[in-house]
Measured scan of single mutants.
Amino acid sequence: KVLVLALYDYQEKSPREVTMKKGDILTLLNSTNKDWWKVEVNGRQGFVPAAYVKVL
């Protein structure tokens, strides 16, 4: 399983997205889209901007 680090806070803007806080460790589920990556955080799955996270 691939983990990513949240570099910035992100507030979800649609039901398909998830909120994350800077420093959160998320599970990367899909990174085929260069702009939006699907992650799991706190038991929820959704998209975050790829530029806001870094693969650990």
Results as ranks from 00 to 15, higher is better:
12 E>T: 10
6 A>Y: 01
47 F>G: 01
41 V>L: 10
12 E>I: 07
50 A>E: 04
33 N>Q: 13
40 E>R: 07
9 D>S: 08
22 K>S: 09
22 K>M: 12
32 T>Y: 12
36 W>P: 00
52 Y>L: 15
9 D>C: 04
34 K>M: 11
21 K>M: 11
28 L>I: 04
21 K>D: 05
53 V>T: 04
47 F>W: 14
46 G>Y: 03
51 A>I: 14
36 W>E: 05
22 K>L: 06
51 A>H: 15
28 L>C: 04
55 V>P: 13
28 L>W: 02
53 V>G: 02
48 V>Q: 00
28 L>H: 01
50 A>S: 13
31 S>E: 07
50 A>F: 02
37 W>Y: 14
4 V>N: 01
48 V>A: 04
5 L>V: 11
27 T>E: 15
47 F>A: 03
48 V>P: 00
26 L>I: 07
17 E>D: 08
11 Q>P: 08
55 V>R: 08
43 G>W: 05
52 Y>M: 13
46 G>L: 03
33 N>W: 10
24 D>K: 03
8 Y>V: 13
19 T>L: 03
41 V>K: 15
36 W>D: 02
49 P>C: 02
43 G>D: 08
38 K>S: 10
6 A>G: 04
11 Q>I: 13
39 V>T: 02
36 W>A: 03
26 L>M: 07
53 V>Y: 01
42 N>L: 09
53 V>C: 05
25 I>T: 08
15 P>H: 13
19 T>D: 05
30 N>I: 09
8 Y>Q: 13
22 K>W: 04
46 G>V: 03
6 A>F: 01
41 V>G: 10
23 G>T: 02
47 F>R: 04
19 T>W: 04
45 Q>A: 15
5 L>G: 03
31 S>D: 15
35 D>K: 14
13 K>I: 11
10 Y>P: 00
56 L>P: 04
55 V>Q: 11
18 V>G: 02
1 K>G: 15
38 K>M: 12
51 A>F: 07
42 N>V: 07
52 Y>S: 13
39 V>N: 00
13 K>P: 05
10 Y>W: 14
37 W>F: 11
7 L>K: 05
7 L>C: 05
43 G>K: 11
7 L>F: 04
1 K>L: 14
34 K>L: 11
29 L>G: 02
27 T>V: 15
54 K>V: 12
56 L>Q: 10
35 D>G: 11
19 T>Y: 04
18 V>I: 15
34 K>F: 07
45 Q>F: 14
54 K>S: 12
44 R>G: 05
22 K>T: 12
46 G>K: 02
25 I>H: 07
38 K>F: 10
49 P>S: 02
39 V>P: 00
42 N>D: 15
8 Y>T: 13
26 L>C: 07
25 I>F: 12
32 T>N: 12
4 V>I: 07
5 L>W: 10
5 L>S: 13
9 D>Q: 03
56 L>N: 04
12 E>M: 10
25 I>V: 12
51 A>R: 14
13 K>S: 14
1 K>F: 11
56 L>K: 04
7 L>V: 10
24 D>F: 04
21 K>S: 14
49 P>F: 03
29 L>N: 03
28 L>V: 11
13 K>E: 14
14 S>A: 15
12 E>W: 05
37 W>C: 03
22 K>Q: 15
18 V>D: 00
28 L>E: 00
10 Y>V: 01
35 D>R: 15
6 A>D: 00
14 S>R: 09
29 L>M: 12
9 D>W: 03
37 W>E: 01
16 R>W: 15
44 R>P: 01
42 N>C: 05
1 K>Q: 12
41 V>W: 11
44 R>E: 06
17 E>W: 03
56 L>D: 05
5 L>E: 15
40 E>K: 08
44 R>F: 12
35 D>E: 15
36 W>C: 04
31 S>M: 12
21 K>N: 10
48 V>D: 00
48 V>K: 00
54 K>A: 14
46 G>Q: 02
55 V>C: 05
48 V>E: 00
40 E>D: 14
17 E>Y: 09
6 A>R: 00
12 E>R: 10
42 N>S: 10
47 F>V: 08
45 Q>V: 12
19 T>M: 04
15 P>Q: 15
8 Y>S: 12
19 T>I: 03
6 A>T: 04
48 V>R: 00
8 Y>H: 11
37 W>T: 04
42 N>A: 13
3 L>E: 12
15 P>V: 08
1 K>S: 12
9 D>T: 09
38 K>C: 08
52 Y>W: 10
41 V>F: 15
32 T>L: 10
13 K>W: 03
36 W>V: 03
46 G>M: 04
52 Y>E: 02
14 S>P: 05
34 K>E: 10
14 S>G: 13
18 V>F: 15
3 L>G: 03
27 T>D: 15
25 I>G: 01
25 I>L: 09
7 L>M: 07
5 L>P: 01
54 K>L: 13
27 T>H: 09
21 K>C: 06
20 M>V: 14
43 G>V: 05
30 N>H: 10
48 V>L: 02
35 D>Y: 12
34 K>R: 07
50 A>L: 02
36 W>Q: 03
52 Y>T: 09
17 E>C: 04
28 L>Q: 01
37 W>A: 05
35 D>I: 13
45 Q>S: 14
18 V>L: 15
26 L>S: 03
1 K>A: 15
1 K>P: 13
6 A>M: 02
39 V>L: 04
12 E>N: 14
46 G>I: 03
8 Y>K: 12
11 Q>S: 10
25 I>K: 08
16 R>E: 12
16 R>G: 15
34 K>W: 06
39 V>G: 01
52 Y>F: 13
31 S>C: 05
19 T>P: 10
19 T>C: 05
41 V>E: 04
10 Y>S: 01
15 P>W: 12
45 Q>W: 08
33 N>C: 06
53 V>R: 00
55 V>W: 06
44 R>Y: 11
10 Y>A: 01
1 K>T: 08
40 E>L: 09
42 N>W: 09
24 D>T: 10
55 V>N: 07
9 D>E: 08
51 A>D: 10
31 S>I: 06
31 S>H: 12
18 V>C: 05
16 R>P: 07
33 N>E: 15
44 R>D: 06
29 L>W: 06
13 K>F: 05
43 G>E: 07
20 M>I: 14
30 N>Q: 14
6 A>P: 01
53 V>M: 07
26 L>Q: 01
9 D>F: 04
54 K>R: 11
23 G>K: 02
35 D>C: 05
26 L>H: 03
1 K>W: 10
16 R>M: 15
15 P>E: 12
4 V>L: 13
39 V>M: 02
21 K>F: 12
14 S>F: 15
8 Y>G: 09
30 N>D: 15
33 N>D: 14
18 V>Y: 06
21 K>H: 13
55 V>M: 13
47 F>Y: 13
41 V>I: 15
33 N>G: 09
9 D>H: 06
27 T>Y: 14
24 D>S: 09
44 R>H: 14
26 L>E: 00
11 Q>E: 14
4 V>A: 13
28 L>M: 06
14 S>I: 05
29 L>T: 05
43 G>S: 07
11 Q>T: 15
51 A>C: 06
51 A>T: 12
5 L>R: 08
56 L>A: 08
46 G>C: 02
37 W>Q: 02
42 N>G: 08
45 Q>C: 07
33 N>M: 13
38 K>G: 07
52 Y>N: 07
17 E>Q: 14
5 L>K: 11
11 Q>K: 12
28 L>Y: 02
3 L>H: 10
4 V>W: 05
19 T>F: 04
3 L>Y: 13
18 V>K: 02
55 V>T: 07
47 F>K: 03
29 L>D: 02
54 K>D: 05
11 Q>F: 11
32 T>I: 11
8 Y>A: 14
3 L>N: 09
23 G>H: 07
2 V>R: 13
55 V>S: 10
53 V>S: 01
52 Y>G: 07
21 K>E: 06
17 E>L: 04
34 K>V: 14
30 N>C: 05
27 T>N: 14
44 R>M: 11
40 E>V: 08
